[in-house]
Deep mutational scan, measured.
Amino acid sequence: RRKSKRKPPPKKKMTGTLETQFTCPFCNHEKSCDVKMDRARNTGVISCTVCLEEFQTPITYLSEPVDVYSDWIDACE
């Protein structure tokens, strides 16, 4: 008699959501930077609500707010 092989359980999909508020690289306030994605103009704007620092970068249809933040961090270095 042959043993029946069980199929492995399906893999769980990533359910965690990406951050939309970030720590400002200038004033170091946590969750003080908000990202606005202007898909019509293909630009992402991130601004700090505390020190009013602002950064704008081009985006694509695949871009997420975390991509705008990482572009800002890269531009600071």
Rank of each mutant, 00 (worst) to 15 (best):
T20F: 13
K7N: 15
H29W: 04
R2P: 05
E19F: 05
E53F: 02
M14Q: 08
D74C: 10
R1N: 07
T17M: 13
K31Q: 11
D67R: 03
P10T: 13
F22D: 03
D67S: 11
R41Y: 04
T43H: 04
S47Q: 11
P25V: 07
R6V: 12
K36D: 03
R6I: 06
I46V: 10
S63W: 04
Q56K: 08
M14N: 05
V45Q: 07
Y69H: 03
G44E: 01
E53T: 02
S4K: 01
C48R: 00
K3N: 15
P65L: 04
T15M: 09
R1L: 13
L18V: 10
H29A: 11
D71S: 07
T60V: 10
F22I: 02
F55Y: 13
D74T: 13
C48G: 00
I46Q: 02
R41K: 14
R1M: 03
T17Q: 14
T57Y: 01
I59M: 02
E53V: 06
C24G: 01
S32E: 12
V66L: 10
C27I: 00
R6Y: 05
P10V: 12
A40N: 02
L62T: 14
P25F: 09
K5N: 02
P10L: 09
Q56G: 09
R6Q: 11
R41T: 14
E54K: 12
C27N: 02
E30Y: 05
I73D: 00
F22E: 01
R41F: 03
T20K: 06
K11V: 08
V45L: 06
T15V: 06
I46N: 02
M14A: 14
D71R: 15
S70R: 11
K36T: 08
C33H: 00
E30G: 13
E64V: 09
F26I: 10
L62P: 06
F55M: 13
F26H: 00
F26Q: 07
C76E: 08
P8K: 01
S47D: 15
T23Y: 07
E53H: 05
D38E: 10
K3W: 00
P8N: 15
T17G: 06
R2N: 15
K12Q: 08
L18Q: 13
H29T: 07
S70C: 05
S32W: 07
R2E: 13
S70G: 12
K36H: 09
K36E: 14
Y69V: 11
K7H: 15
S63Y: 07
S47N: 07
R39N: 00
L52D: 13
P58S: 07
L18P: 15
L18G: 13
G16A: 11
Q56E: 14
H29M: 03
V66D: 05
F55C: 12
F55R: 03
P58M: 07
L62W: 15
D34F: 04
D74M: 09
A40F: 12
I59W: 05
K12W: 02
R41I: 15
K7A: 12
K31T: 03
K11S: 07
M37C: 02
A75T: 11
K7R: 07
E64I: 10
R2K: 14
T49D: 08
C33P: 05
P58F: 12
T57H: 15
C33Y: 02
D34N: 13
P65C: 08
G44S: 05
V35I: 10
L62M: 12
Y61E: 13
T43K: 15
T57F: 00
N42H: 14
E53I: 05
K7C: 08
P9S: 14
Q21V: 13
N42I: 05
P9N: 09
C24I: 00
V66E: 15
K7W: 01
N28R: 09
K31C: 03
V68G: 01
M14E: 12
K7S: 08
C76N: 06
R1Y: 03
D38C: 00
N42Y: 02
P58A: 13
M14S: 10
T15C: 09
S70Q: 09
T57G: 08
P9R: 09
C27M: 00
L18M: 08
K7E: 14
F22R: 03
E19L: 06
E64P: 03
W72H: 02
P25S: 00
T17Y: 09
E19Q: 12
A75K: 13
H29N: 12
T20C: 11
C51P: 00
S47A: 13
V66N: 14
K31G: 07
V45G: 09
T57E: 09
I59R: 01
C24E: 00
V66T: 12
E30T: 11
L52S: 13
T23G: 11
G16S: 13
V45Y: 02
Q56N: 15
I59T: 11
C76F: 13
L18A: 10
E53L: 06
S4R: 02
Y61M: 15
L62D: 12
E19V: 11
K13A: 05
D74L: 11
K13W: 01
Y69F: 15
C33F: 04
D67M: 04
K11I: 05
K11G: 09
D34H: 06
F22S: 04
I46S: 05
P65N: 15
V45I: 04
P65M: 10
W72V: 02
P8D: 15
K13H: 08
R2Y: 11
Y69C: 04
T60P: 03
E19Y: 02
P10N: 04
S32N: 08
N28F: 14
C33N: 01
C24D: 00
C33M: 04
R39M: 11
G44C: 00
G44T: 04
T49S: 12
N42W: 08
C24H: 00
F55N: 04
D74F: 05
F55P: 00
D67Q: 15
T15G: 11
V45T: 03
D74A: 14
C48S: 01
E30R: 08
D74V: 10
H29R: 12
K36R: 08
L62A: 11
D34W: 05
K3G: 06
N28Q: 05
V50Q: 12
Y69L: 13
R41L: 14
N42L: 12
V35G: 01
T60K: 10
R6W: 03
C51Y: 00
D34P: 14
C51Q: 00
Y69R: 03
Y69T: 00
E64W: 04
E64Y: 05
I73S: 07
P10K: 12
M14F: 04
E64K: 11
T23K: 14
S70E: 08
P9K: 08
